[in-house]
Computed example of a mutant assay.
Amino acid sequence: MTSMAFRSARIGVLCVLVTAVGACGLLPRSGPTRNEIFAGSVQREGDAFVVEVNQRVTAATAVVPALGFPPELVNAGLSDSDIIRPGDRISFTIYENVTDGLLAGQGASAAQIEEVQVDSAGFIFIPYAGRIRAAGNTPEALRGVITRNLDEQTPDPQIIVRRVAGDGSTVTVTGVVGGQGVYPIERPTRTLSSMLAAAGGVTVPPEIAQVTVVRGHHRGTIWFQDLFRDPSVDIALRGGDRILVEEDGRSFTALGATGAQTIVPFESQVISAIEAIASVGGLNPLLADPTGVFVLRNEPQEIARAVLGRDDLIGAQRMVYVLDLTAPTGMFEARDFVIRDADTVYVTAAPITQWNNAISALTGTLGAAQTVGSAAGN
Score class of each variant (00 low, 15 high):
residue 212 T to G: 05
residue 162 R to D: 02
residue 141 A to R: 12
residue 152 E to Q: 12
residue 210 Q to F: 06
residue 129 A to N: 02
residue 144 G to E: 15
residue 169 S to A: 15
residue 120 S to G: 04
residue 111 A to L: 09
residue 128 Y to S: 00
residue 209 A to C: 11
residue 194 S to F: 01
residue 139 P to L: 08
residue 152 E to Y: 01
residue 213 V to P: 12
residue 138 T to D: 06
residue 151 D to H: 08
residue 145 V to G: 01
residue 125 F to P: 00
residue 150 L to A: 02
residue 149 N to K: 15
residue 113 I to V: 15
residue 122 G to I: 09
residue 168 G to P: 13
residue 213 V to N: 10
residue 157 P to I: 07
residue 137 N to R: 14
residue 159 I to H: 07
residue 138 T to H: 07
residue 192 L to V: 07
residue 134 A to T: 03
residue 148 R to G: 11
residue 180 Q to A: 14
residue 196 L to I: 04
residue 156 D to Y: 13
residue 184 P to Q: 06
residue 150 L to W: 05
residue 195 M to F: 11
residue 165 A to R: 14
residue 171 V to N: 08
residue 183 Y to A: 04
residue 211 V to P: 09
residue 197 A to K: 10
residue 186 E to G: 13
residue 142 L to C: 09
residue 174 T to W: 01
residue 182 V to N: 08
residue 177 V to W: 02
residue 138 T to P: 08
residue 198 A to C: 04
residue 166 G to L: 08
residue 199 A to G: 13
residue 190 R to Q: 12
residue 208 I to K: 03
residue 134 A to P: 05
residue 158 Q to Y: 03
residue 117 Q to V: 15
residue 194 S to Y: 05
residue 135 A to M: 00
residue 167 D to K: 08
residue 200 G to S: 06
residue 207 E to I: 00
residue 127 P to I: 05
residue 203 T to I: 05
residue 146 I to R: 08
residue 180 Q to T: 11
residue 186 E to Q: 14
residue 141 A to N: 10
residue 201 G to I: 03
residue 122 G to A: 06
residue 173 V to I: 14
residue 154 T to P: 02
residue 117 Q to D: 07
residue 170 T to G: 06
residue 193 S to D: 12
residue 188 P to Q: 14
residue 153 Q to L: 14
residue 188 P to D: 12
residue 165 A to S: 15
residue 171 V to M: 11
residue 186 E to S: 15
residue 188 P to T: 12
residue 130 G to N: 01
residue 119 D to G: 09
residue 150 L to I: 06
residue 213 V to G: 12
residue 182 V to K: 09
residue 211 V to W: 13
residue 147 T to Y: 05
residue 136 G to T: 01
residue 155 P to G: 06
residue 141 A to T: 11
residue 140 E to H: 07
residue 110 A to P: 00
residue 165 A to F: 11
residue 146 I to W: 07
residue 165 A to D: 11
residue 152 E to V: 12
residue 173 V to G: 04
residue 160 I to C: 01
residue 164 V to K: 11
residue 125 F to V: 10
residue 199 A to V: 08
residue 173 V to H: 05
residue 189 T to I: 02
residue 167 D to N: 11
residue 206 P to E: 12
residue 209 A to E: 08
residue 205 P to Q: 03
residue 112 Q to V: 13
residue 153 Q to G: 01
residue 212 T to S: 14
residue 122 G to P: 08
residue 137 N to T: 07
residue 197 A to L: 13
residue 124 I to M: 05
residue 175 G to C: 05
residue 140 E to D: 13
residue 121 A to Q: 14
residue 193 S to W: 03
residue 157 P to V: 11
residue 143 R to Q: 14
residue 118 V to T: 10
residue 210 Q to A: 09
residue 178 G to W: 01
residue 120 S to W: 00
residue 181 G to C: 06
residue 159 I to W: 04
residue 117 Q to L: 13
residue 111 A to E: 09
residue 133 R to I: 00
residue 201 G to W: 03
residue 207 E to Q: 15
residue 128 Y to M: 00
residue 116 V to Q: 14
residue 182 V to C: 02
residue 133 R to A: 04
residue 201 G to H: 05
residue 123 F to W: 07
residue 198 A to G: 01
residue 144 G to S: 12
residue 112 Q to F: 12
residue 182 V to R: 12
residue 130 G to E: 00
residue 117 Q to Y: 07
residue 212 T to K: 15
residue 209 A to L: 10
residue 207 E to V: 10
residue 177 V to H: 02
residue 143 R to C: 08
residue 130 G to V: 04
residue 198 A to T: 09
residue 165 A to P: 11
residue 198 A to M: 10
